[in-house]
Design a protein around this nucleic acid. Structure first.
Lengths: 207, 207
DNA sequence: CCAGGACCTAAGCGCTTGCTCAGTCCTGGG
DNA sequence: CCCAGGACTGAGCAAGCGCTTAGGTCCTGG
């Protein structure tokens, strides 16, 4: 059965209580990432968590609430990563390297969660979407500030700061689409490669 | 009604005959791009095309066949763009600039079609997916050859040719996710920006 | 020892889905 | 004029959907 794999996935959601709710969110992440939100049935989620379909509704009001919880948690974690990188010591190039490495490798390491939060936004309710959009704008702003700092300091050569910010975020986010655990690159190697490529994009590649 | 907008979208599918089949594929592109394949109903597609639900099945055997047709046509067009760029005259840098500009701006211009062919692959049947995967590998190979040429000629500074190829493709493909017609950038401007950024990635930015 | 709440299930409701089919309409060749 | 055949529709089927309800079983504290 898939119950064991669902338990593995639930490791990322260790702070969710009670245990049944944690198993359900783990199962939902797995199923949503594999098949997509709309193609996943509540019966499938409950089955992966080793429960009857009705058990889902004791812990979550609707299927959409499950998606929302996953989305909030994921976005908060992504924002935290970007905040840490933006607040680090060093030159703008150091901070950009750090941010891209962390952001890209997170999208590889947690590609199941990342896939859901990046590609199922349209399945959220309007109110929930608005909340998520706010978190996304904050992440965007942090990265833009790093790039703007580097441009102001003459470290970077950037023609279009918002456009470059968009491209860098887009590059990192799309890792979730193509990354597979059985590929030839580890998440850390992806982070390394991407940090290097992005420093090239802003004209600040190390010698 | 949405029928007029579906007709507009069908302009891209001018060679599809008869007329009803063309309107249906236009309506399907619009609906799939807006809501996603699984969230789109056959009733919705038929309705946008101004027909009854049953009319769809005269021209297409299943809903999946409609997705498959869109996917094949889209991938063939993307491959054609990449082939043209790869076969152009000039240095590797010229060809890379040309390829990225064309590929990225196509993903912006035709972002509805592109969104479907890039993000609904998992909804295809196994046989159809295999056929599409072949087209994707060809596109990938063409871009990799350009980058390899530039690296061999000493025009580019690239540590990891397959990895860089993956990143460049990923960057262009993801345009389909974020691009909207009412944004502040035209498809051509996106192509321009992206070509410039990618030349930076390979360490060959023009002065 | 048992009351009561937390947790879970079997069964199933009302609805929507992809798809079918008998029959109607329309067009063009004889 | 007729009528063959393709395009299309109205009605609807079987299956599957999200979600609810009635009723159990267990665990805990008094």
């Amino acid at each position: 059965m898939g119950a064991e794999r669902a338990d593995e996935a639930a490791g990322e959601w260790a702070e969710v209580a009670p245990d049944a709710a944690q198993r359900l969110v783990g199962a939902a992440v797995e199923a949503f990432a594999e098949r997509g939100y709309h193609a996943t049935t509540t019966r499938d989620i409950a089955g992966r968590a080793g429960m009857s379909p009705a058990a889902l509704y004791i812990h979550y009001k609707t299927k959409e609430e499950l998606l929302y919880r996953i989305s909030v948690t994921g976005h908060e974690r992504a924002l935290k990563i970007m905040t840490a990188a933006a607040g680090a010591e060093g030159t703008a190039a150091d901070r950009l390297r750090c941010a891209v490495h962390a952001f890209a490798s997170w999208h590889a390491e947690r590609h199941t969660t990342a896939r859901i939060i990046q590609y199922e936004l349209k399945a959220l309710s309007e109110e929930h979407y608005a909340e998520i959009a706010d978190l996304r704008r904050k992440t965007d702003r942090l990265l833009r500030e790093i790039i703007q700092d580097g441009a102001d300091a003459g470290e970077f050569t950037v023609r279009d700061v918002p456009g470059t910010t968009l491209a860098v975020l887009s590059l990192c986010v799309d890792v979730a689409r193509w990354f597979t655990a059985d590929g030839k690159r580890t998440p850390d190697q992806v982070g390394e490669l991407y940090a290097d490529l992005v420093l090239g994009m802003v004209g600040a590649r190390r010698p």
